[in-house]
């Protein structure tokens, strides 16, 4: 995966292909760390010792533009834009290896979730990038029916990101259909409105606390 282009005046070449992004204090978002800590259930992430266990144990870290260890450091320092625009937060497959292994008991998976929530709320992610699109399509289907339909989810995802990918999945899709493992009949709970009421109530309860 390509690393995103960064503004050249902020990239400092340290030689031997090592680049560091530098910022003055005034350019950093000082409140970012607190915002993430609140969403990710933990003050503990301030105690990160930057040991890199999370990056070592992560099965997808070598595909990431910033490793989990660096993400934690960047969140603490206030690199808001860079973190929210990174591919890292979306590549996290949520396997909890890092959370299980962290010597400081930081819930790194929850930190990644918190970052995804902020990025989706603010619409900061590459257009047609499938992972946040999938999360939102899933969200919509369940909100409407109370249950997900895997076939419909894959279809909606392809249509919203790359319709040609349907061809790539056609063979698997057909086999699933033939073996009765995917259906067009949508499962749903008895009273559709109930999930919408439930989710609406969450929004209201959250607002009431503010």
């Amino acid at each position: 995966m390509e690393t995103r282009d960064r503004t050249p005046d902020q990239l400092v070449d340290l030689g031997e292909n090592v680049h560091r992004l530098i910022k003055y204090e005034g350019e950093l978002d000082q409140g970012f760390a607190a915002e993430v800590a609140r969403l990710a259930h933990g003050e503990k992430f301030y105690t990160c010792i930057q040991c890199g266990t999370c990056s070592a144990t992560c099965p997808v870290s070598h595909y990431m533009d910033f490793t989990p260890r660096r993400i934690i450091a960047m969140v603490r320092a206030g690199f808001r834009e860079e973190v929210l625009r990174s591919f890292t937060i979306w590549l996290c497959a949520s396997c909890y290896s890092c959370t299980a292994d962290c010597p400081r008991e930081i819930k790194i998976t929850d930190v990644m979730y918190a970052l995804k929530q902020i990025a989706i709320k603010e619409g900061i992610y590459p257009k047609r990038f499938p992972i946040p699109v999938m999360a939102q399509e899933f969200y919509k289907i369940v909100k409407k029916k109370g249950r997900n339909n895997e076939g419909k989810l894959m279809m909606n995802l392809a249509l919203k990101t790359n319709p040609f990918s349907l061809l790539r999945y056609a063979k698997v899709g057909l086999k699933l259909f033939r073996t009765g493992r995917v259906t067009l009949r949508e499962e749903s709970i008895r009273n559709h409105g109930e999930i919408q009421t439930l989710l609406g109530a969450v929004d209201r309860a959250r607002e009431a606390a503010k």
Binding site: S94, K116, Q117, A135, V142, G146, R147, R206
Partner: peptide, 15 residues
């Protein structure tokens, strides 16, 4: 109903 899977967690944890 659906448990929310990893997708709801990415959109809204309380939900």
């Amino acid at each position: 109903n659906c448990c929310g899977a990893t997708a709801y967690m990415a959109v809204d944890e309380l939900k």
